[in-house]
Amino acid sequence: MSATAVAEQPRTHSTTGSDFIVETRNLTKTYKDFWGRKKKTALNALDLQIKRGEIFGLLGPNGSGKTTTIKLLLGLLFPSNGEATVFGKPAADVRKNERIGYLPEESYLYRFLNAEETLDFYGRLFEMSREQREKKSAELIELVGLKEDRKRTLREYSKGMRQRIGLAQALINDPEFVILDEPTSGLDPMGTIWMKDLIRQLRDQGKTVLMCSHRLDDVQDVCDRIAILFNGDLQELGDVDKLVEDAARVEVRATNVRLTPELKQELEAVITRHGGALESFGHPTTTLEDLFKKVVEESKARPGRRYLPTTGK
């Protein structure tokens, strides 16, 4: 799996006045039943701006209105109040979709098609020529690592494989603005890492990314700015680094020293002298992600079983 295939020259598009890809004003969505009775206000007066070239994360617990926001931006839902513009055009305008790639929460694709046919079909919807479609779909299948399985129907695909073909489908038109609803769901840790790499690459190509997730580590790793929603209300909005920065604490890391009581005493003395207090002292733990990455990489280099269970003979 390499993400280099998407590395193309960033394309320049005419900007429409402002440099905001997405703007919402007072965007509100109330789900109603057939008789117009109110069922649930899923989004309440959201004001949001997404700048060109950033990775924007929508964060929030289940049912907080992330998917609702995305559907409003795509015109899958119509706002109950307020408005949303994408590329300066109303969300209901289908022309804007030419510059958008969308990966739904689940890959809502036709299961009787295989990977190639799927990409060919969506390519046609963008009025791509046959050569363009063939070239692009080969490229994307390679990118998402489904080369071996490209002739199998999607019915036989696993969740993660469907997520991958879903992503390929979202990138078929080389979009300027990519909307990813839970991009890492269903992916294995390697897949997650690959996905995050890819998202960053997309940004490096000058694309704008809107993703939503409730996996905080994912968001923290890739997003430039985030919005946190809770129960349809915007709770927090800003740069990730600023938001998570804990100004009250200081972290020091060092290599090539042994963890001795003397070291601790001396450090503590320095810190107290500066008016602080030592909270913890010890070895940093690596994350499970790092461990997993290491194991997989090593097993790629030397295939075969390594862990031998120590059960009785």
């Binding site: 015109g75 022309r95 739904p104 689940e106 809502y108 919807l125 489908q169 038109n173």
Partner: peptide, 15 residues
Amino acid sequence: KNLTIHTIVTKPVER
């Protein structure tokens, strides 16, 4: 029902 239409109407497809 299968939500497959979501992937279609989010392309530049007239309804």
